[in-house]
């Protein structure tokens, strides 16, 4: 089993004692198959128990270990140390306030997620006895890719627009709204449009495409946002040229 020593430069911030964050160096003897999260766990267990960060699944499904690794938004549990030859810089996710060390304040994202109603709003309510809401494989395929989001917020850390205009609803929230809008069983599009077709919704997006480049689940949020733009534009033209279609 090959081992090697890796240098990590981790951003530290203790709200009780620090005025601003600073970097701290750690040397870790790591194994070939270790990811950045393994190194952080090793530091916490053997060197410095005060180091704070979030994680849970260690298998890229919970979405809680997002951080900046050498300036790039990454899941710490999916980023192998062996892919980084030099000192590895580990910082909290960009564009979010730092709570402590690598832990960020994510209230903004959670609030936005809530606003887009990312759940099934049935077209027609029916009693449980009436059975399931059924769907064909083709209808599932229409939105499947957008269900893969694990709410890791890497796309927000990559999005320059969100960095400059924090009111922007952002890639994941809009993609999830789109996911439900594309669902044949759902009837909630009009409610979600209030949020996503607004200025601070999809029109804040300038299609840099950074979100899709960093998304660990290949959701392709940039694609979802452009599709929402096109659909909202069609809505606008229909409403203004064929008003009789408005119910």
């Amino acid at each position: 089993m090959s081992e090697r020593t890796v240098e990590l430069e981790v951003l530290r911030y203790n709200p009780e004692t620090d005025g601003e964050p600073h970097f701290q160096r750690y040397s870790v003897t790591c194994r070939e198959e270790w990811v950045v999260l393994d190194a952080l766990n090793h530091i916490k267990e053997t060197v410095d128990p005060t180091l704070s960060y979030r994680w849970s699944c260690h298998m890229a499904v919970c979405g809680s270990c997002g951080m900046m690794i050498d300036g790039e938004p990454k899941l710490a549990c999916k980023t192998f140390l062996r892919d980084y030859p030099g000192v590895i810089r580990v910082e909290p996710l960009a564009h979010f306030p730092v709570e402590r060390d690598l832990v960020t304040v994510i209230d903004d994202f959670i609030a936005k997620l809530t606003r887009v109603k990312p759940y099934l709003i049935p077209k027609e309510e029916k009693p449980v006895a009436a059975g399931e809401y059924r769907q064909t494989p083709a209808q599932l395929k229409r939105y499947k890719q957008f269900t893969l989001c694990i709410n890791c917020m890497l796309c927000y850390a990559a999005c320059p627009e969100y960095g400059i205009i924090p009111k922007f609803l952002g890639p994941a929230a809009i993609s999830l709204a789109h996911r439900w809008n594309q669902d044949s069983r759902d009837g909630g599009r009009a409610q979600r449009q209030e949020e996503i077709a607004a200025t601070e919704g999809v029109w804040e997006c300038s299609f840099t495409g950074a979100c899709s480049e960093v998304c660990p689940e290949h959701v392709d949020p940039a694609a979802a946002l452009q599709q929402v733009k096109i659909k909202s534009t069609v809505d606008w033209y229909l409403a203004h040229t064929m008003p009789w279609l408005n119910k």
């Binding site: 709200p15 620090d18 300036g71 960009a94 730092v98 709570e99 320059p160 960095g163 950074a210 480049e213």
Partner: peptide
């Protein structure tokens, strides 16, 4: 619990120099 979240500023003007993908954009 005392909370004092730290906000790391991002450059407003030359933000696109931060990353090659921003420069491509």
């Amino acid at each position: 619990v005392t909370r004092k979240p730290y906000v790391r500023e991002v450059p407003r003007m030359l933000w696109f120099l931060r990353h090659p993908r921003y420069m491509r954009y």
